[in-house]
Amino acid sequence: MEPSMKKQENAKGVVKATASAAKGLRELFEVGLNDIYYAEKVMTKSLPKMVENASSPELVTALKNHLAETEEHVSRLEKIFKSTGIKTVAKKSNAMEGLIKESEVTMKETELGNVRDAGIIAAGQKVEHYEIATYGTLHAFAKTLGEDKAAQLLAMNLDEKKKTDAALTGIAMASINAQAAAPNPKW
């Protein structure tokens, strides 16, 4: 073991790795795939609730379109698992669980209409940003590992996530945010 590694392991505040900790990039890639697979599967259950709580026709359409895309993302991830020989596992994502809970709290703490729509967009964008970061990282890992098919499929998901984020921004800026800022906003 390198002297610097020994020093780091003994340093105050250094987290001790578990026995099952990833020891290489391939294992870290697998952990990331399990995480995003869980996240996408959970979103297929959460998006319909957002649709039911959205008032803006444009937002409802965007969320329904995103649900269809999310189902395609799950399918692409399953292709990645198959092409890489990694077992298909949806490992609970603490980050996604937190974002989902936050979106539910936002819906409970806002009145139906423009204010709730603005909150749904904000919650949705937080999820998209998490997924963009995850897909970007996994794409880089796949390229480094020579997993070209996986890299291609991950790039497709990443591109669609970025487009969804931009669409949500467009909907918010076109009308919802301004209407939500008005005194006594109503839909």
Rank of each mutant, 00 (worst) to 15 (best):
L99V: 05
I100A: 14
E102G: 06
S103E: 03
E104G: 10
E104Y: 11
E104H: 12
E104K: 12
V105Y: 10
V105G: 09
K108Q: 14
K108G: 11
K108S: 12
E109M: 12
E109K: 15
T110W: 08
T110V: 04
E111D: 11
E111N: 12
E111G: 10
E111R: 02
G113P: 00
N114L: 06
N114F: 11
N114C: 12
V115N: 00
V115T: 07
R116D: 08
R116S: 08
D117E: 09
A118L: 02
I120R: 02
A122F: 09
A123Y: 00
A123L: 08
Q125P: 02
K126A: 09
K126N: 13
V127I: 14
V127L: 04
H129R: 08
H129V: 07
H129Q: 09
H129M: 06
I132V: 02
A133T: 05
A133W: 09
T134M: 15
Y135N: 03
Y135C: 07
Y135A: 01
Y135S: 08
G136F: 06
L138T: 05
H139W: 11
A140Y: 04
A142M: 06
A142F: 04
A142C: 10
K143D: 13
T144R: 14
G146N: 00
E147Q: 12
D148S: 15
D148R: 14
K149C: 02
A151G: 09
A151M: 08
A151Y: 05
Q152V: 14
L153S: 01
L154S: 07
